[in-house]
Design a binder for these strands. Structure first.
Length: 281
DNA sequence: AATTTGACCAACCGCCACATG
DNA sequence: TCATGTGGCGGTTGGTCAAAT
């Protein structure tokens, strides 16, 4: 369409968009420009809101735990056989595990810092649950003065936990990350695993799990699923320090059930005594 | 001081899946 | 069943700015 504004958003435009969303809520993006009085396309408004203006968006450098999760999940998703058929990396899936981070932010960070041709090379050690960070430039501080700010910061973080024995192969301390449970549709499950779901499973999460998950109070089960199955619901996450699920206020949730699950980083499956193929990642 | 280089990241683009009529 | 609209996603582009020359 002609005459629509493109490029960087002004403060005035941000304000108009913010007011519009506050008044009408998210969605119906094609109507947003008219409602907000913006000379932008709806798609542009949606992107601006979701990636920048939305409340609780976390900006700035990534924490070591966040980096760890990005690397692990990218490795996991990038190795899928089906990816050879269609190039499809799920940044949004990774973003769903990092409260406040957007898929675009993670994608940008990965493309500039973590790609193969980047400054560091990463290996994951399954047994020790650590990420090995290999410095590809032995003396980067001596003869590579133009190290960007972000990379300097990353190098500094890594050196802080280095045991000092090996300057080129460092271990970045990390903790086992327990991600949110996630529901996959029948089609998505088959896409990822290349295995058909048993016929007695349905796509209705409550009925399906009620039928197959033993030893769990039904009311508790229902609550957990309603909070955990949707990528857009990020109100619960795990406190890595003590492996307890906490809400946004830091209150410890009843997680007796989910504590019995953990992620197998090799297979991508949620494992536990009550293993359920619906819950991977 | 002026110019060049390169990192960063906001924003756009094109494609796809799904919903609706 | 098909056409159209809408939203969501990954890949890419281009503007900005700091550092190097």
């Amino acid at each position: 369409m002609r005459g629509l504004r493109k490029g960087t958003w002004s403060k005035e435009e941000d304000q108009l968009l913010r007011r519009c969303i506050e008044k009408f809520g998210e969605g119906k993006w094609s109507q947003v420009p008219l409602r907000a009085g913006l000379n932008r396309c709806g798609k542009s408004c949606r992107l601006r809101w979701l990636d920048y203006l939305r409340p609780n968006i976390k900006r700035g450098d990534f924490e070591p735990d966040e980096l760890d999760l990005i690397i692990r999940m990218h490795k996991l998703l990038g190795n899928r056989q089906v990816r050879q058929l269609i190039c499809y990396l799920r940044w949004s899936l990774i973003a769903g595990r990092l409260p406040g981070r957007t898929a675009n932010d993670i994608k940008n960070y990965y493309n500039t810092h973590l790609k193969k041709n980047s400054f560091f090379k990463y290996h994951t050690d399954q047994e020790e649950q650590v990420v090995m960070v290999e410095n590809l430039d032995n003396n980067i501080n001596d003869h590579c003065p133009r190290v960007p700010k972000r990379k300097c910061q990353l190098l500094l973080d890594i050196n802080n936990v280095d045991d000092g024995n090996n300057v080129n192969l460092l271990k970045m301390k990390t903790k086992i990350i327990r991600p949110l449970p996630r529901r996959f549709s029948r089609g998505e499950w088959q896409w990822i695993t290349n295995k058909a779901l048993p016929e007695n499973r349905t796509d209705n999460i409550n009925s399906a799990t009620a039928a197959t998950t033993p030893n769990m109070d039904s009311s508790k089960r229902s609550t957990k699923f309603s909070e955990g199955i949707d990528d857009d619901h990020r109100t619960h996450y795990f406190n890595y320090d003590n492996d307890q699920e906490v809400d946004e206020g830091g209150n410890v949730a009843d997680n007796n059930y989910w504590n019995s699950f953990y992620l197998d980083h090799n297979s991508g499956h949620m494992l536990g005594e009550e293993q359920d193929p619906y819950f991977i990642f």
